[in-house]
Design a protein around this nucleic acid. Structure first.
Lengths: 214, 214
DNA sequence: AAATGTGAAGTTGTTCACAGCT
DNA sequence: AGCTGTGAACAACTTCACATTT
């Protein structure tokens, strides 16, 4: 599991509920493609792997959206969650560090479908031939701050080596980034108002390792 | 953040504490390479990005390991956490689905340093030339169950498309896998005793998206 | 003096039980 | 009748305050 590090500014919806809203959204999209118009909390909760009471509690943070005796309107709920999460419009994202993992993420088509677009990638070795065939242009680090500012980008994916991650984080924050998805295995120090989500694969494996011991 | 889905069998240490133990381990390793012998809860907590009281509470699940007035012995604490997490011996892991992300993970050197070894990878398209240059052999799916059994593998990384993820999960569970690190964007249904950790990059981005809205 | 270990208090998140719509 | 919405009970987690040890 990744971990949230900094506290948000507007904090009305609990962190874990926000996370689950994303899961619900995915389930709703599947229902939509099955042409279903309404869904009960019981059915949606089952698809999302949670209890129906928890789903209903989560949804009350969005207001009263269901119809008693009937359930929830799939389209309406889906639109409301999108709006709440801020994913109704395509969010521009930059990616820094085009190594194995960074390149894999650039090639991943899922982001576009989910409402995000990696508008540019950056790497120390930009300009060399090794980045041919990627769907996104790779720019030198000197272009990082100007492009963040020019495109009003607010989110960055960090797939750089741990040794330089803090320095890169400082740069993107100075340029106006307020959300960082960090793959480097270290704890980033950032200003209060910047949000960092960590994804650390070794930690996920260690976590499994503990729980599968008999 | 990834999310833990199934409840563990032996549950003495709280989930979140187990997660943080991994973080502490990384910080301790850095201290070790700096040749420090002891560390205070204050210093280690700061490095890990948590409060010192929380660190001490977490460590009490391992027993009384510190020395009052002095701090913790770096080597001893590191060894104890490794033992607790089950990462003192190298854990064999299989990876299924050698697409962009799967291949990137195979090339990632970090796992070995962290106590895991990907012993084999599997893909429908094994045998074709496209997997040349990877550090691990890619086998056809027909070899999956036999190899899991032969090497007593208990952990699997799933980097397959969502459409086939449940089917592959069924296969690895039938072969004896009890821990799954799932990158496919869907909720896997597995037996009670199997542990699933999910890593979903789109959800992490959506989560950031919500919290950076002013 | 300096730092750990821990019961108790406080906070957050989950589940229950059932009232209230349609 | 069926299903949502929600206060209240419950459980998990975090922080505090301070006793305890070196």
């Amino acid at each position: 599991m990744s971990s949230v590090v900094k506290k948000p500014i507007r904090q009305n919806i609990p962190r874990k509920s926000v996370y689950r809203l994303s899961v619900y959204l995915r389930c709703l999209n599947r229902l939509k493609s099955n042409l279903l118009q309404t869904v009960s909390s019981e059915a949606l909760a089952h698809a999302a792997g949670v209890k129906s009471t928890q789903l209903r509690k989560d949804l009350t943070y969005l207001g009263q959206i269901g119809t008693r005796g009937r359930g929830y309107d799939v389209d309406q709920l889906s639109a409301l969650i999108n709006e709440t999460l801020g994913t109704n419009s395509l969010q521009p994202v930059v990616l820094i560090g085009v190594g194995n993992l960074g390149a894999a993420l650039l090639r991943y088509r899922g982001f576009g479908e989910e409402g995000f677009r990696i508008v540019a990638a950056f790497d120390l070795q930009a300009g060399e031939g090794r980045f041919a065939g990627l769907p996104v242009a790779v720019h030198p680090m000197s272009k990082l701050a100007p492009m963040i500012i020019e495109h009003s980008v607010r989110m960055a994916i960090l797939t750089v080596p741990a040794a330089v991650a803090q320095e890169v984080a400082n740069q993107v924050v100075a340029a106006g980034i307020t959300g960082i998805l960090n793959f480097a295995p270290l704890v980033l120090t950032v200003p209060e108002e910047v949000m960092v989500n960590n994804v650390n694969l070794a930690i996920e494996l260690e976590n499994l390792s503990y729980f599968i011991q008999e």
